[in-house]
Design a protein around this nucleic acid. Structure first.
Lengths: 329, 329
DNA sequence: TTGAAAGCGTTACCAA
DNA sequence: TTGGTAACGCTTTCAA
């Protein structure tokens, strides 16, 4: 049963109809007499015919695909975003290219190449150079940024910043902490820059001087690696740029026989599934990651269909107090 | 500067040549006089022309894309595999669809749909039903399985099983542990089934009766969730199906104020980056994940190019002894 | 060295 | 209700 070479013409010949009729039957549009329809259906099923995506796409001048661009692909944060993207894209028959720029040697060039294969792109904030975004916009490729970004991107979806500010105030006011350290690389990451700004502002509002941040990546390993420096620094709290770093740090702190929150308060951002399960539970800012991915995709598909969309969409975020900040478990 | 509608014909007209010449110049093949080449280059650059991937693909009858199918996308395990895939695919100008079947409502149908858009697929063991693999093979779609799989798949890449057997023997013989528990769901995962078999065999070789396994998923959260049951069970060692589960378990055990390896020995499989960084270091079986992804992709591209390839490729794995099993750190 | 023209596998328009 | 045929944007062969 080699059905490799089956195409409309072949099926049309076998069913004794024209290719136009085969196309109509397959896609269920136009009018076809029941008898003809049945004949064609039979041939389609017998040979397992499926139209070539290539021909289809060329005729429609639409790839039926979009790209989602992230810095890396590791960890629950991206997994949840992708989850959100797929919940929207898959039911609509749109396939998704997931791109991690950290793996790419020449990301700009490769992104431009990917751009030729998709109808639109959702780009995570802080992943690509401004010139690349400009080029893409110049080509009229529908574009949505996930998270804040300094680029002149037409459409942005992000979460509310306020909850993070509340978190820092909670640590300073309610727990009376006075030597907090911010953990995360803000250079090149607008998301992290926002958080660092909130960290700074919360301190200044109380007339306090924030400590220099610890610049590091945002994966679990970076939290683990930061442990010794933080424990040696005499801090009373580590405000991590995301949950993964926080969880890595917590693991390393516990592994050294120290207590959380007694020896060190630890907080994160995102509220990934692990955060509510560990002991102590991780105090964090819950962000609707799945919704973030889904919303970005929905907007992107709307743009592709020629609709005008909001230039900024803000999703809510909220402070989640658990035991790692000293609140009762 | 709306360069949206630029196509070969347009460039050809602007450069005063035929579309064949534009194609030749763009791809650097055939013979073109320096003067003509220059003229065409200028037009290409001025308008930022890039050939439509759709036309190109249809003419070549090749998508220039492949799909990699995993159960889920979360965690370093898949990130490393994808990394390996991309190191091979990207330099060859082949783009990659990363598919996580766990997110799909109707995975078989969607996979068949993806199959229309790619030149070949690399499928992780234990992700799709036999009938889907059969269908794909019937369509003559080049296919490589990553990891062992019961399906009659033509080509498989996997890692050596022996090291895991050594690991269990090491715990039983060298550390004298007698109440080990295997953690991981072997149903539906050939990889895990292999490991459970090795666990069982290692016990039987010493005349020991293995404990019933704890059937659970393979992400960090599953390890965290398993902690209470394992600590309550009076086991002296937890042999986890992979590092992520082991790390989750370790985190939870430490979070409850217990010691590793004193109160519980913990081991994993894979040797993801975290495993060498945590304290205590995680004893595990190092598997060349990046190489696994790269090799699968290389074989897949060879198949796509019509080459005959080995039906089974086995990459080495080795026991890595760290502190979590009781070996000196 | 160059160009005209024939595919590649669809969809969609227009007649019949 | 049907079929012929012209796109869609490219590559490639064959002549010139």
């Amino acid at each position: 049963m080699n059905h490799e070479g089956m195409n409309v013409r072949e099926i049309a010949r076998l069913a004794g109809v024209s290719i136009a009729t085969v196309s109509r039957v397959y896609r269920g549009v136009g009018s076809v007499s029941p008898k003809t329809r049945e004949k064609v259906q039979a041939a389609i099923e017998q040979y397992g015919y499926r139209p070539s995506h290539l021909g289809e796409a060329l005729a429609n001048r639409r790839h039926g695909a979009l790209a989602v661009v992230f810095p890396g692909l590791s960890g629950p944060y991206f997994a949840e975003l992708i989850n959100g993207v797929e919940t929207v894209a898959v039911p609509r028959g749109v396939s998704v290219h997931v791109i991690g720029t950290h793996l790419r040697h020449d990301a700009p060039k490769e992104l431009l190449d990917v751009a030729r294969r998709v109808d639109g792109m959702a780009i995570h904030g802080g992943t690509v150079e401004e010139s690349v975004v400009d080029d893409l916009v110049g080509r009229h490729l529908p574009l949505v940024m996930i998270g804040p970004d300094p680029h002149p991107a037409p459409v942005v979806v992000r979460t509310d910043h306020e909850a993070f500010h509340l978190l820092v105030r909670h640590l300073l006011n309610d727990h009376g902490l006075r030597k907090l350290i911010f953990i995360g690389q803000s250079e090149g990451s607008p998301d992290l820059t926002q958080r660092w700004e909130a960290f700074r502002t919360a301190h200044e509002e109380l007339g306090l001087q924030p400590t220099e941040p610890l610049r590091t990546g945002l994966e679990q390993v970076h939290g683990v690696r930061a442990a010794d420096e933080i424990l040696a620094g005499g801090y009373d709290g580590a405000v991590c740029g995301n949950d993964e770093t926080a969880l890595g740090l917590m693991m390393a702190v516990l592994g050294r026989g120290r207590k959380v929150p007694d020896d060190l308060v630890i907080t994160g951002v995102d509220d990934v599934p692990m955060s509510s399960l560990v002991s102590p539970g991780l105090t964090t800012v819950a962000r609707p990651l799945v919704d973030l991915g889904a919303t970005a995709t929905r907007l992107l598909l709307d743009m592709i269909n020629g609709a005008d969309v909001e230039s900024e969409t803000v999703l809510p975020a909220r402070l989640v107090r658990r035991a790692s900040c000293g609140c009762a478990p």
